[in-house]
Structure formats: C-alpha cells, structure tokens
C-alpha cells in the first residue's frame, strides 16, 4: 500500500523534474514562455515599424520610382531636397502651422486649466464641453470648419458682416489658407492642452497656495511665483507634444485645403505623400521622411533630457 503510493507519487513527480526542476531548466522554460508572450507584439513591431524604418533610410540613398530597382545615388536626394523650393516651402508652412497653433492652444489651454481648476458648479460639464472636439477625427473637424469658414455663406463671415467687417476668402484664398487650418486645429487641440495642464495643476499641493495667501500674496503674484514655476514640467510637456504633432500635421490640411490654393498650405507630410504617389519619386520622399524623423527625434531627445532634469526638482 505504502509502496504503491510512493511509486505513484514518484511517477507524478517525474515529468515535472524533466520539464524544469533544476534552476537552469526552469529559467530556460520561463524565458521561452516570455518570448511566446512577446512574439505577438514583437513580430509586428519589427515587421511594420523597425523594418520599414530601416528601409526608408536605405531608400533615401537611392533613386527609386517604386517600380524599377533602386539605383544608388548616395546623398543626392538630400542635396536635392535642400535645394528644392517646394520642400522648403513645405517646411515653412509646417513651421507657420506650429507658430500659429502653439501660442493659441497654449494660452487658451492655460487660461482654461486655471479657470476650471477652481471649485465651481458645473465644472465637469464645462471641462467636457471644451474637451469634446478632441475625440472627433481631424477630417470631420476640417469639413466642419470648411463650412463655418465658407467665404459666401459661412457663419463666421456672416457674424463678421454684422460688425461691418468684410470677411476674407479663408481656405479659398492663398493668404488665408494657413490661418484657416490653424483656427480649426487650435479649436480641436485646445481641450487636449487644457487636460494636460489640469493634470499638472492638480499635482500642486494646495497648502503652498494657502500659505502664500496667508502671507498676503495677490492672485497674480501667486500665479507668477508659485503656480507657473511648479507647472513648468507640464508646460514643457505641452510644448514638446505640440511640436511633435505639429511637424507631423497632415489630416486636416489634406481634408481642408489639399495643400492649396496654389500650394499655399502644402506641409511636409503632404509633400512626402505627393512625391511618392503623384510624382513617383520614392527615393526623394524617403529622404524627406528621414529628415522629418530626425526633426521629431531631436525634439523627443530634448523632452527626455528636460524630463530628467525636472523629475529631480520635484
């Protein structure tokens, strides 16, 4: 009886010993399980992010029309891009876009965050209303604003007319195409910036402000000397994110103006798209992609360095 049970027990133990009761075998088994858990994300990320990234770098050094084999040209594509007035214009428009939206969403978002951080009735509803555009698509936003900024029958020009102002041609006018895109984009991004800054404000301990109030500091003084300095990490993050997203701007431009009129709102990503799918110059487009990547990478590096510095402060 007792012999039989011990044999049974040994038989039950046996396979377990084989699969990994020595520490080494157990570690190997754990590693294999880990790789199995990672494979479903690691394989796609390698195939659809890392490999294309390497491919873009390689293609940027070649003459390539997407059909015939690549021809090595060294850095010719980069040289051509620097000399290409349309690419320079695309960068100028992208910087115009960033220069226009950043101050709008930053000042607006900061004002909203400060205003809606106080205890007040209906605060959540108000926050929700400001955040609403964030959840919609850029294409829907572009179409909405094409209608609002319609030169003939749009609401904006009608309201301007009440005040005796003759509204501009907005997206139909080369001078006003970028401002139109900037207005629509700022409207969509305002709530996003507000939420990021609200999170930063909520991390500031209330006691700091209370102490300053007891010391007789005016609201303006408290904002300048306490709130804003303590909010620096959030402000920094907002600026970085707006820059990164700004360099990649495309959807709303494509849907609102298509880069026009007369190329007046063509941005970098649109230029990549056009070079590839309209002019069939994938080598040049890849080189431009690499430049865009480099710009985004530099901004990201600034973010990482800055974050390290500010984490120590806190």
């Amino acid at each position: 009886m007792s012999a039989a049970t011990s044999i049974e027990a040994a038989a039950r133990r046996e396979p377990r010993r084989r699969t990994g009761s020595t520490p080494r075998a157990r570690r190997r088994r754990e590693a294999l399980i880990a790789y199995a858990f990672l494979a479903p994300s690691a394989i796609p990320l390698t195939a659809f992010v890392l490999y294309p990234m390497a491919q873009a770098a390689w293609a940027s050094l070649h003459d390539w029309n997407l059909i015939t084999p690549m021809q090595w040209v060294g850095v010719d594509n980069y040289v051509a891009l620097v000399r290409d007035p349309e690419t320079l214009a695309a960068f100028t428009h992208t910087l115009y876009y960033i220069g226009g939206t950043l101050p709008l969403v930053f000042c607006g978002g900061l004002a909203l965050a400060l205003g809606l951080n106080r205890a007040m009735k209906g605060r959540n509803l108000l926050r929700g209303m400001y955040f609403l555009p964030v959840v919609t698509s850029w294409v829907a936003v572009a179409i909405l604003w094409r209608w609002l900024l319609n030169p003939e029958v749009g609401v904006v020009n009608q309201v301007l007319a009440w005040f005796g102002v003759d509204g501009p041609g907005w997206w139909t006018d080369p001078t006003w195409s970028m401002p139109s895109i900037i207005i629509a984009s700022a409207w969509k991004d305002l709530g996003f910036v507000m939420v990021l800054l609200l999170a930063g404000l909520q991390a500031i301990p209330e006691q700091v402000n209370e102490a300053a109030t007891l010391d007789g500091a005016s609201p303006w003084r408290r904002l300048r000397s306490i709130t804003l300095p303590l909010l620096t990490p959030s402000i920094f993050f907002v600026i970085i994110i707006t820059l990164i997203n700004g360099f990649q701007v495309f959807d709303q431009v494509y849907a609102m103006t298509g880069g026009g009129p007369a190329g007046s709102s063509e941005v970098v990503v649109q230029r990549i798209y056009d070079l590839t799918f309209r002019f069939g110059d994938a080598g040049l487009a890849s080189a431009l992609s690499m430049i865009l990547f480099l710009v985004v990478l530099i901004v990201t590096m600034i973010q990482i360095r800055g974050e390290r510095r500010w984490v120590n402060y806190a």
Binding site: Y51, P52, M53, A282, A285, V296, L297
Partner: peptide, 20 residues
C-alpha cells in the same frame, strides 16, 4: 526597443510600408 518604436511616427513610414 519597444519604447523606441513609439518615437517613430507613422508619417515617416508610409513609403516603405506601402511597398511592403
């Protein structure tokens, strides 16, 4: 490496990804 892939924008990959 996972974190690094977060820094690569889709916009940069459109040409090679289309070819792939």
């Amino acid at each position: 490496v996972y974190l690094a892939t977060m820094m690569i924008p889709m916009q940069v990959l459109i040409v090679p990804l289309f070819v792939e």
